[in-house]
Nucleic acid binder design. Structure first.
Lengths: 155, 155
DNA sequence: TTCGGGCTCATACTTTAGGGTGATTTTTAA
DNA sequence: TTAAAAATCACCCTAAAGTATGAGCCCGAA
């Protein structure tokens, strides 16, 4: 308990002791220098500078480093993981391949890229996508993706 | 240039001026108090304390806060109500109009339809979308939409 | 075994999207 | 007030997307 208090106020105590010693030093210096009248201003200035530096040192020692916490936002997939709405898929009559194409569309891939990903020709993807649009009753892939997300057909 | 320098060293200059003024004050006090011999120690102590406080104040003012980057995980599209991530929008440098276009893109509208919705020409939408793709570093509207949703820029 | 659905691919064509450049006007910030 | 950014529009050209149609292959169900 007592030692804890001592430890906590260590800096303050040290400073108090240092201050006391310094006042003694000043008193001693005073005796030496008081005679030299023209050195008085220098003496005063020295004290001012010394205590300023002391104050700065004290502040730096005693204050916890100022920290500004910058939050860097990291986007992660949200907790409830995606469960495909099989009912909607069946209702629309989408085949497995058509669903594959729709999923890759949603990832922003072009028809060319989808065809490479699935190892089929570009024309095949065009056929699939056309069927997807037909079955979902949309005109464009962006609409298909939008609707697919709404219906939980794709994540 | 000159004003910049002044601004940068504002604290230092202020301190210098304050110090000068204080030395003047001390000089004046000296004339008053030097006669009262027994007040001398108090005078010295006051100076010491004052400059210590000044130093502390200075240190607190001048220390730059240390920045700590903390990664904060943000789970996107959790709740039903959408809150636009303004930070990401600013980070990407998207303007209001570009955001409008992106939003309508996400709804599955064609450029033609977007232009009609916003009462501008098709070419204008093309320009906006091109800027959106450039700023988001994507190649297609589907990618822009996908990224926009991930970053909570669009619902 | 036939028949339909799913998957594949092709050709031809139209529409939409996107890239590049340049210009004018309006708005905003310094 | 001046400079920068935003918004508007145009023209030209290429790439990608989408439409329409036809056709061959495979597999499982009737």
């Amino acid at each position: 308990m007592a030692s804890n208090l001592l430890a906590k106020n260590k800096h303050t105590i040290l400073y108090a002791v240092a201050l006391a010693l310094l006042l003694l030093l000043l008193k001693w210096l005073e005796l030496k220098l008081i005679i030299v009248d023209n050195a008085y201003e220098i003496y005063m200035g020295a004290i001012a500078v010394f205590f300023t530096v002391l104050g700065i040192w004290l502040a730096l020692k005693l204050t916890k480093p100022k920290t500004v916490v910058v939050e860097k936002q990291v986007y992660v997939n949200n907790g409830p993981e995606f469960i495909i709405n099989q009912t909607e898929v069946e209702k629309l009559g989408l085949s497995k391949r058509e669903l594959d194409v729709l999923q890759l569309m949603a990832e922003g891939l072009s028809n060319q890229e989808i065809s490479e990903r699935l190892f089929v020709s570009l024309n095949t993807i065009k056929t699939h996508s056309a069927k997807v649009f037909e079955k979902m009753e949309v005109k464009r892939r962006t609409q298909a993706v939008e609707m697919g997300k709404r219906l939980s057909i794709i994540p």
